[in-house]
Design a binder for these strands. Structure first.
Length: 115
DNA sequence: GGGCTGACCGCCC
DNA sequence: CGGGCGGCCAGCC
């Protein structure tokens, strides 16, 4: 029966899928993903979903998701204090003062690229 | 069962 | 220009 099967996985799994679609060396924001999924005001849930992304079998590049200012607000949830920054820099993304350099140019908007 | 918190965002003063 | 608050929704006392 699909009475209750319709709600649990959708949002979370779509967050993971969209996040996996972020190209190498690009970044996006929680709000952009939330908006693409049809819940523009559920940006917090995107962060919540990414918090559980470690449980997923397929790796989710959660380090490519930052807040609307390009700040690495989620870095505290990575194993090391500089893990998120190092992952980004390994993709050629520069990080200064906890913020993505050239954020606006590197920004990848699923609303534009996918829809 | 109610209330608080959160990897956010946008509005309001 | 800075600070505060409501919204959305799932998980945890």
């Amino acid at each position: 029966m699909n009475q209750l099967s319709n709600k649990n996985d959708n949002f979370f799994e779509r967050v993971y899928e969209v996040t996996r679609l972020i190209p190498f060396g690009r970044v996006t924001s929680y709000g952009a993903i939330a908006r693409y999924l049809g819940s523009a005001r559920s940006a917090r849930m995107v962060g919540w979903a990414l918090n559980s992304s470690v449980n997923q079998k397929e790796w989710v590049p959660a380090h490519r998701v930052v807040n609307r200012n390009g700040l690495l607000t989620g870095k505290i949830h990575f194993p090391g204090q500089n893990t998120m920054k190092e992952l980004l820099e390994s993709e050629g993304i520069k990080v200064e003062n906890n913020r993505v350099v050239n954020f606006e140019e590197l920004f990848w908007d699923p609303n534009v690229e996918l829809g």
